[in-house]
Amino acid sequence: MTRTFEEWKSWYEAHAEPADPIEGASLYFEPEHGFFYYKIFPDIRAMYVDHFATDNYQYLFRRAREIARAAGCGEVITQTFHPAKAYARLSKAHLDLEHSTRGENGKWYWAFTEVLNNVESNRT
């Protein structure tokens, strides 16, 4: 289904939380598949994906991996307030308890890290 960015953002906010990206984040958007914000951290060779709205998680996360690799990143980091077990099954990323935290809104956010170019962690 094709939607405008505002339609995708409204859908996300109705089902999750306000889509307020972290400072310095960039937007990736496809009308057919949704959006995510991301920020590259070159000092740790990682890309942080923030506020992910899609009708096809596997497709859009492949795009995130492509952006990360092109930027020279070795990891993709995400956080979610959804159940950790379900997110791990969907993303194939590894739970990162060190970076899991309670947000300013009071919700607990599980952090996940996927090491790129690792056959075991890239199953999608």
Rank of each mutant, 00 (worst) to 15 (best):
E7P: 00
E7C: 07
E7Q: 15
W8G: 05
W8V: 11
W8P: 04
W8L: 04
K9C: 00
S10D: 06
W11D: 14
W11S: 13
E13G: 02
A14C: 06
A14H: 12
H15C: 14
P18T: 04
A19W: 13
D20G: 03
D20Y: 10
D20C: 07
P21T: 06
P21N: 03
I22S: 13
I22Y: 12
I22P: 13
E23H: 13
G24M: 07
G24Q: 00
A25V: 12
A25Q: 04
A25L: 07
A25D: 03
Y28I: 04
Y28M: 05
F29Y: 05
F29A: 01
F29C: 09
F29N: 07
E30V: 12
E30H: 00
E30K: 07
P31Y: 09
P31F: 09
P31K: 03
P31E: 11
P31I: 09
P31C: 12
P31Q: 07
E32K: 14
E32V: 10
E32P: 00
E32H: 05
H33Y: 15
H33P: 02
H33S: 06
G34L: 12
F35Q: 00
F36A: 05
Y37Q: 15
Y37R: 00
Y37D: 04
Y37H: 13
K39I: 14
F41Q: 10
F41K: 15
F41T: 11
D43A: 06
D43L: 12
I44W: 01
I44M: 11
I44A: 09
I44D: 11
R45V: 06
R45H: 10
M47E: 01
M47K: 04
Y48W: 13
V49F: 10
D50N: 08
D50L: 01
F52D: 01
F52K: 02
F52V: 08
F52W: 03
A53P: 03
A53K: 12
T54C: 09
D55F: 09
N56L: 05
N56I: 06
N56K: 13
Y57G: 03
Q58Y: 08
Q58K: 15
Y59H: 14
Y59G: 03
L60V: 07
F61Y: 15
R63S: 02
R63F: 02
R63A: 13
A64N: 02
A64C: 07
R65L: 08
E66Y: 08
E66D: 11
I67F: 13
A68K: 01
A70S: 01
A70Q: 10
G72W: 01
E75G: 02
E75D: 11
I77S: 04
I77M: 15
T78N: 05
Q79L: 09
T80R: 06
T80I: 03
T80A: 02
F81V: 10
F81C: 09
F81D: 01
H82E: 12
P83G: 01
P83Q: 03
A84S: 11
K85T: 11
K85Y: 09
K85S: 08
A86Q: 13
A88L: 13
A88M: 10
R89D: 11
R89K: 15
